[in-house]
Amino acid sequence: DTFTFTLDGIEVRLHGASEELIKTIEELLKRDIRWEELEKWIREWEK
């Protein structure tokens, strides 16, 4: 599955994202998160 969203005018596609990761990103997007914050968060998630 591919999860697609737009952040700061950039279309982002995550391939093979888990349901948990998708739900977490959706929550972060509701908080009007900035790209830099999401990028940092995703790097931490990957560890």
Rank of each mutant, 00 (worst) to 15 (best):
T2L: 10
K23P: 01
E39P: 08
E36A: 14
L7W: 13
V12L: 05
W41H: 15
I10A: 03
E44A: 11
L14P: 00
D8H: 04
L28Q: 05
K30E: 10
E46G: 11
F5W: 01
K47E: 13
K23Y: 07
T4Y: 15
I33Y: 04
R13L: 08
E20V: 11
I22M: 06
D1S: 06
D1W: 03
T6D: 14
K47S: 12
G16Q: 05
E19Y: 10
E11K: 03
E20M: 11
I10P: 00
A17D: 02
L38F: 15
W45K: 03
I33V: 10
S18A: 05
K23S: 10
L29C: 02
E44L: 07
E11I: 09
F5N: 02
L28G: 05
K23T: 10
E36C: 07
E36N: 11
L21F: 08
W41G: 04
T2K: 06
E11N: 03
H15E: 15
D1C: 10
F5Y: 01
D1Y: 09
E27Q: 10
K30P: 01
G16K: 05
E27T: 12
E20H: 10
R34P: 05
E20I: 09
L21D: 15
E46I: 14
E11D: 05
E36I: 13
F3A: 00
W35C: 04
V12G: 01
E27G: 09
F5L: 06
I10N: 06
E26D: 07
W45V: 06
E39Y: 13
L38T: 00
T4Q: 11
H15D: 11
T24Y: 10
K47W: 09
R43W: 11
K23Q: 14
I22D: 00
E36T: 12
L14Y: 02
D1R: 08
L14A: 01
E19G: 10
I22P: 00
E36G: 07
K47N: 12
T4R: 04
L7T: 04
I22F: 03
G9S: 02
K40E: 11
T4E: 15
L21Q: 10
T4N: 10
K23F: 10
H15Y: 12
I25M: 03
L21P: 00
R43V: 13
W41N: 06
T4M: 12
E37N: 07
A17P: 07
E19A: 15
F5A: 05
E20L: 10
E36L: 09
E11H: 04
E11L: 05
F3G: 00
F5E: 02
A17K: 04
S18K: 04
I33H: 03
I33F: 06
E39R: 08
E37Y: 06
V12N: 00
E36Y: 08
G16H: 12
T4A: 07
D1I: 13
L14Q: 00
H15T: 14
I33M: 06
E37R: 03
A17L: 08
L28R: 04
D8M: 04
I10S: 02
V12A: 02
L14G: 00
I42Y: 09
L7P: 00
G9C: 05
L14S: 00
K40M: 11
T2E: 15
D32E: 10
I22L: 05
I22G: 02
G16T: 04
E27A: 11
E19Q: 12
F3W: 08
F3T: 01
L21G: 01
R34K: 14
L29Q: 02
K47G: 11
T6Y: 15
I25Q: 00
H15C: 08
L29A: 02
T2Y: 11
G16N: 14
F3R: 00
R13E: 15
I10R: 05
L7V: 15
R13K: 15
E27H: 07
V12I: 13
G9F: 03
L14V: 14
S18G: 07
L29S: 02
I10K: 08
L29W: 02
L28A: 13
D8N: 05
E44V: 06
W41L: 15
H15S: 13
S18Y: 03
I25C: 02
L29V: 07
S18C: 04
E46M: 14
W45N: 06
R34V: 07
H15A: 06
I33P: 09
E20F: 10
T4V: 15
E27M: 11
K40T: 11
W35A: 03
K40S: 11
I25W: 01
T2I: 12
K30H: 07
L14F: 06
L38R: 00
K47A: 12
I25A: 01
F5T: 05
R43I: 14
E37A: 09
W35D: 01
W45E: 04
L21T: 13
I42K: 01
E46F: 15
S18L: 03
T6I: 15
D32A: 09
F3L: 04
K47H: 14
E44S: 12
K30A: 13
W45S: 04
E36F: 08
L29N: 01
G9R: 00
G9K: 01
L38E: 00
D1G: 11
L28V: 07
